[in-house]
Simulated scan of single mutants.
Amino acid sequence: MDEAVLKNATETAWRVYRARHPDVDAHDSRRCLLARHLHRRWEERESDTEELASFGIAYLHRLPRGEC
């Protein structure tokens, strides 16, 4: 696994999500959920940074706000 691809995808998805949701704290629990989701996704199927980031953004938007 190329850890740089995973790290870059996670950071990109988190930055995009927080830009759209400025009320979300940088250390919000959704960040950890995102990292775990993308790690599992990477293990299932290798992807590039852009594809993983897209999956991450979609995942964050599906999370229920009240449960994070």
Rank of each mutant, 00 (worst) to 15 (best):
E11Y: 09
P64G: 04
L6K: 15
R30T: 09
A35M: 04
L34M: 12
R62C: 10
H39E: 12
S47V: 02
F55L: 07
T10K: 04
S29A: 14
D2Y: 06
L6Q: 12
E46N: 00
L34T: 07
R15W: 10
D28V: 11
A35S: 08
A4H: 08
L63V: 14
G66N: 12
A53F: 12
C68P: 00
A26P: 06
W42F: 14
L33P: 07
H27Q: 00
R20C: 01
E46P: 12
E51A: 11
R41W: 06
E3Q: 04
T49E: 00
D25G: 08
A13P: 11
G56C: 12
G66T: 08
W14I: 08
R41M: 14
F55M: 09
R30W: 10
T49I: 02
L34W: 12
L38R: 12
E43Y: 07
L33W: 09
H39S: 02
D28R: 07
P22Y: 11
Y17T: 05
K7L: 13
R31N: 02
R15I: 06
H21D: 03
E44P: 00
A9R: 12
E43H: 14
R20G: 06
N8Q: 10
T49H: 06
R41F: 02
T10D: 09
N8P: 02
G56W: 05
